[in-house]
Structure formats: C-alpha cells, structure tokens
Amino acid sequence: MSATTDSQHSRAGAQTLDWLLRAENLSKAFGQTQALSKACLDLYPGEAVAIMGPSGSGKSTLLHAIAGIISADEGKVILRRPDDEGLDDITTLSEAKRSAFRLHRFGFVFQQGMLIPELTAEENIALPLLLLGSGRTEAVQQANSGLERLGLAGLGERRIGQLSGGQAQRVAIARALVTDPTIIFADEPTGSLDSRTAEEVLDALLATNDGADRALVIVTHDEQVAARCDRTVRMLDGRIEATR
C-alpha cells in the first residue's frame, strides 16, 4: 500500500515534483529491541506528513534516523541538493558532516521545544544563523521578523522560562524556520499543550509550508493533528504499516 502510493505520487509528479528526501529500508536495533525495521519513506516538497503509531513503535527513532541524529544500522537516507544539483546519502557521512546537514538543511521542533534556557527568545532563534556565520545584527533582525511572523512580537528579550508553553513552542518553530530549511521535523510538538494552545501551535507549524517547497514531518499521537496533514504514515513494531 505504501509502495503504491509513493510510486504513484512520484510518477504523477515525475516532471515537476521530485522527492526531497528518500529513506530506504532503514533498520535500527537498540540491544535486543528492533526499534526500526526496513522502513521506507519519501518526502515531497510542500507536503505535511504525520507519523502515528503506538508508544514504542519507533516513530521517534525513524525521525532521528531520517534527520541524521542517530545513524541507522542499515538503509539509506538520500537528500536532494538544492536546485537539483545532485544527491547526498546522509547515512554514509561522519558525525560532524551530519551535524552540518542538520544545521543547513533541517529544522527541529520537539515536545519540550528543546530551547536553550539561558538564552533569550530572540537569541534562541538567532542561534542557528550565528552558527552558520551570520553577523549579530543580521541574525537578530531575522529572529525578530520570525518572532513577528509567529505573533510573538515584543517577547524577544524574554528568557524561555518566562514564556508560556505555547509561546515557547512557537519560538521553537521560529528557530526551526530561520535557516529556511528543506525539511522541518517535529516530534510531538503539541504533546504537552492544552487543546486550544495545541491548535494554535499546529496552525503555526503548518503555516511554515505555505508557499514553500519545504516538507514537514510531524510525529503525533493526536488523530486531529494527523487529519490536518496531507498524509499519515502508521507505524507498528518498527515497521511502516500503512500510508494514507
């Protein structure tokens, strides 16, 4: 089922719509636990993909493997270079190179945001740009327009502890967006929020794809979140069971 949808998808868009990232047969074991077995996933420009499945089914592991946070035992993760200038296999890269890929090509939003508590909201957002070598003024300027875009204007000087959960999560989204990444990965981004705040954060997250050739991957336990994505990948015991 998953294979047909994906190949149809790619056939339909063969001329205009090539995948951004292709994960092939990813497997990963932690000791005796087979967290991931032969998982395949293609990501296309402009789409939002939900990953669902029971606890322990390997959703986070899949996300970490695709994003190069952990290295899979087997399989490939192929990423297309901007302007179609070739392909890179992330799985063969060194730790440092994968780190550079995450910085240049990916954005991340996690359940707790994983923001840096010591830094202000503005500095948190500016951080990836600074890591890429931007000047302070430019980075801060971009951070502020990010804050504005997410409805957080005026909160730039606050520390993360001084923000509400929903605000912090939107700061995390702004940080993920600031480098204009190819793919944004979100692991239960609304998991710790009440339903109304969750809605707002989800709106902000989905809006990151508006008019962009970006892909968005959201790991979630919430059917309503999944319903708002373009398709849903369901996992069980480290396998991808179905794709809608």
Binding site: I69, E95, A96, S99, A100, F101, R102, L103, H104, F106, F108, F110, M114, L115, I116, P117, E118, L127, P128, L131, R175
Partner: peptide, 16 residues
C-alpha cells in the same frame, strides 16, 4: 546534558 543534546540536534558541531 539536555542543553547539550538540544544543541547537538539543531546541528551545533561537537567541537563548538
């Protein structure tokens, strides 16, 4: 450790 893990995930190199 959480701070360092977070920074590592967004792609801050270990040497930094």
């Amino acid at each position: 450790r959480e701070l360092y893990i977070a920074l590592d995930r967004i792609g801050m190199p270990a040497k930094d």
